[in-house]
Computed example of a mutant assay.
Amino acid sequence: MASHMTEMLKGTLEGIVLAILRDQPAYGYEITTRLRDEGFESIAEGTVYALLIRIEQKGLVDVEKVPSEKGPPRKVYSLNESGREQLADFWETWGVLSARIEHLRPA
């Protein structure tokens, strides 16, 4: 089941991370921790950081560099208006897709 879960998550991880950022701004490690707290233990930190770069390049988040007690400044990501629109599209698509899948599920 783990490999199926990993494959399915690849297509939905962006929406999941945007949903996490909807609640409050966060930096990469906080996002990874939140994902693990929500039951997504198999997601690697590198996967999250690569995704953060992509959503930053797509203009879905605002980034602020915040001083860190240890090491270089942290990049804190917050959802902007484009990100909120993308998240709304994600939830709409998710609703349609999950309803269609549930319709196919045997009783």
Rank of each mutant, 00 (worst) to 15 (best):
G83R: 03
Q86C: 01
E81A: 14
R74F: 10
S82Y: 03
K70A: 11
V63D: 04
D89L: 06
G59D: 08
V63H: 01
E81N: 07
L60Y: 10
K75R: 12
P72L: 09
R74P: 04
D62R: 10
S78Y: 05
S68C: 11
E92I: 05
R84D: 06
A88S: 10
G83A: 03
K70T: 12
F90K: 03
V63P: 05
N80S: 04
K65W: 01
L60C: 00
K70V: 14
T93Y: 01
D62Q: 09
E85S: 14
E92P: 10
F90N: 01
S78K: 02
E81W: 01
K75C: 10
P67A: 15
F90M: 10
P67E: 15
W91S: 15
E64G: 09
E69R: 08
R74V: 12
A88R: 00
V61I: 09
Y77I: 13
V76Y: 11
V76L: 13
K70R: 08
N80E: 04
K75N: 02
G83H: 02
P73H: 10
P67G: 14
E69H: 09
L79Y: 06
E64H: 13
S78W: 07
K70D: 05
E64R: 15
V66Y: 02
K65Y: 01
L79F: 07
P73W: 15
S68D: 04
E85G: 13
E81D: 09
E64Q: 12
L79H: 00
V63C: 07
F90L: 09
E69N: 15
L87G: 06
E92G: 12
E81P: 05
N80C: 07
S68Q: 00
L79P: 03
G83M: 00
L79I: 05
K70M: 06
E64M: 12
A88Y: 04
L60R: 02
E92R: 01
E69M: 13
V61K: 01
K65R: 07
E92Q: 07
T93A: 14
S68M: 04
E85R: 09
S82H: 10
E92V: 11
L87A: 04
E64S: 12
W91K: 13
K65V: 11
V66P: 11
Q86I: 03
T93R: 02
Q86T: 05
E81I: 07
G59E: 05
E81M: 08
P67C: 15
P73A: 06
K75Y: 12
V76S: 02
G71M: 12
P73D: 01
D89F: 05
E69A: 14
S82W: 07
K70F: 11
L87K: 00
E69W: 12
V63M: 08
E85M: 06
A88K: 01
K65H: 10
D89A: 06
V63A: 04
K75I: 04
S78V: 02
Q86F: 03
G59A: 08
E85K: 10
T93Q: 02
D62S: 13
D62H: 04
A88G: 11
S78N: 04
E81K: 02
V63R: 00
G83K: 01
E81Y: 03
Y77N: 02
L79K: 02
